[in-house]
């Protein structure tokens, strides 16, 4: 079982990101589970969401205590003790940040080595392609690149399904942003 914990702030689509990842995994034939941990329901409050992916039915409901993968949508949360709670030796991190993995590892007092960190300039991509700082879909492109669990195709298909009632141009923009985050190479 792979356990993923996503951290962000209210209004950033933290919950939707978990749903999209799990839906993409389901499309590949996995059992999946996605659920949120709402704090107070207001914009800007730290929020977590959780994803489990497995080959067999997932029955546990506990919040993820020891994540295999951490996704941080908002770098300002990096210093909150909740974010690094329960990390293991091999926990991987995907973070929305223009900084390189080495700098981020130093910011974390090397609790996660640079080789396990993928940093994605998701805010920059989102502002350019979506016109607003909503990075939840964008950062999933970086997730797909780092972890070969789910194919890009399945994630794009999950976007089409989840946003089916939204404007087609919005769907296309999100897909383009995900693809850019997926193909992004840090110079």
């Amino acid at each position: 079982m792979i356990q993923i914990r996503i951290h962000g702030r209210g209004g950033q689509g933290v919950v939707t990101a978990a749903e999209l990842l799990a839906l993409a995994a389901f499309k590949e034939g996995y059992f999946a589970q996605a659920f949120p941990a709402f704090g107070v329901e207001r914009s800007g409050a730290p929020i977590q969401s959780f994803v489990r992916i497995d080959n067999q039915a997932i029955i546990t409901r506990e919040q993820i205590q020891e994540p295999d993968i951490l996704i941080i949508q908002d770098a300002s949360l990096l210093h909150s003790s909740e974010v690094l709670f329960g990390i293991k030796k091999n926990t991987k991190l995907i973070i929305n940040s223009p900084e390189n993995p080495k700098t981020i590892s130093q910011l974390l007092n090397k609790k996660i080595p640079a080789k396990n960190i993928t940093s994605s300039p998701a805010t920059e991509i989102a502002l350019r392609l979506l016109g607003k700082n909503i990075v939840n879909t964008v950062i999933l492109g970086a997730f797909i690149k780092q972890n070969k669990i789910i194919k890009l195709k399945s994630l794009l298909s999950a976007i089409s399904e989840k946003f089916a009632e939204k404007d087609q141009s919005l769907i296309n923009k999100n897909k383009a942003a995900i693809t850019e985050a997926y193909t992004y190479v840090r110079k």
Binding site: A18, F26, F31, A32, Q33, A34, F35, P36, I58
Partner: peptide
């Protein structure tokens, strides 16, 4: 509430 109402699964 939330645990089942707001979670996604098969």
């Amino acid at each position: 509430g939330f645990i089942l109402t707001h979670s996604f699964e098969n």
